[in-house]
Write a protein that binds this DNA or RNA. Structure first.
Lengths: 234, 234
DNA sequence: AAAATAGTGTCTCTAAGACAATATGCG
DNA sequence: CGCATATTGTCTTAGAGACACTATTTT
């Protein structure tokens, strides 16, 4: 009753980005026990001195590896049990983050993590073994991302500030793993008045350049009333 | 770095039920510091010896006050900061639970809580002041409940095992705070094949008795593809 | 003008909102 | 039978899927 608890409490950000037509997440290689040498999520303990609240702990972890701040961050779920860490009762609060332009980001290794890299995801999650229950945590984050992408405008946060509707379509198709009608995205984004035309265009190749847009409110996520349902069954 | 964390970790179940045509939640009166004498959620610290995981901590709290088990329980979010508890860094994992037939439940006070009662909710949340940030936690749970009710079959978990479509309609209207078309519920529940007819009927008054139904799968929540949007704007 | 992608038109389909019409069980 | 509620019918509407058609820019 009055004896002190001993629950280790950490945050685990699942940091998503898209390049090479694939969804990737950030993983780090542990160089401490337990699971020394294993790949894992770039999480870590909440620091009662540093962190004012849970979100700032997640933001701090994100910043340590990517030096980014201000990107989209959403709490997914909290997992905790006596058995998920061999050292005893532990809790982790899982977040997901969306990062645009990964090419321009310098990843930095920190204490406890000797290497940092982007690992591609396949349909079911990650393809390499991970420490702790991190594979499960990634599946939870991926499921949340997919579901949210199908009924909100959140996917736009994976794109550069200015983007075309084709970019938007590609991102949706990569995350959902299926064809998405460009007309649907047009209706959703333009119809809900989410986008602002950007005057300049991109000139690539010999074809008609697409209109560049940016989100009117970079910090809001719009909820559409329906979920995209995908191709009709025959 | 290696100094032990001292984060108090608790679960706070927001236990919803409906009676007298109003949504209610369970509150307890604290008889320990801090906030001695204040009403609060029926939460408490995770017990590393008792609880195998977070969900079982929430289940235990629920059982302590209501002696119920097996009712619908869903994790809402986790809130934690240096400032939400005057004693220092603390985290709470918020759950919501749905309880049918509150009339038949004997509430039991436990250590740390001298009184237990159902408190009605109004549109914006609870009408009495509560300890800590519990008012905020309730708003989060209420928002989640409302949103979930409008695109899933979760509201049925607030009803007795056998219920009529009118019961279902009433529950929806109470939670959402607006009229809901009975035809919509008919289409959703019957059309998605969620219900089983119960042979006996209820005979109340001198009118045609309504068909009694029960959920085919008591432990599943069905996700409808659209959200109920409410009355059309003119 | 041709190439090649951008953007629009429009038909169908599903499920919700609205509400009228019909069915049913009981006194 | 008639009352009061239950259940069904069905019209309208919004928005997605499908896909053809038109528009635009550059070479």
């Amino acid at each position: 009753m009055t004896r002190p608890q001993s629950i280790q409490t950490s945050v685990d950000p699942v940091i998503f980005t898209v390049f090479d037509d694939k969804l990737h997440i950030l993983v780090v290689r542990r160089n401490i026990e337990p699971y020394n040498g294993c790949w894992s999520l770039p999480g870590g303990l909440i620091d009662c001195k540093e962190d004012l609240d849970i979100a700032s702990a997640a933001t701090r972890k994100l910043k340590e590896k990517t030096n980014l701040s201000g990107c989209y961050l959403e709490q997914v779920a909290t997992v905790g049990s006596a058995s998920r860490d061999p050292r005893g009762w532990s809790i982790t609060i899982v977040y997901f983050a969306l990062i645009p332009r990964p090419g321009e980001i310098a990843l930095t290794a920190t204490h406890g993590a000797s290497e940092v890299r982007w690992e591609p995801l396949n349909n079911d999650g990650i393809g390499i073994p991970l420490a702790f229950d991190h594979e499960k945590l990634i599946k939870m984050a991926l499921e949340r991302l997919r579901s949210k992408v199908s009924y909100t405008s959140v996917a736009a946060h994976l794109l550069d500030e200015a983007f075309t509707l084709l970019d938007l379509q590609n991102i949706h198709e990569i995350i959902l793993g299926r064809k998405v009608e460009k007309k649907t995205l047009m209706r959703r984004y333009i119809g809900s008045d989410l986008l602002l035309k950007v005057p300049e265009n991109r000139h690539e190749g010999r074809m008609r350049p697409a209109q560049l847009y940016q989100l009117k409110e970079r910090n809001k996520v719009h909820y559409f009333v329906r979920s995209m349902e995908g191709p009709r069954e025959e």
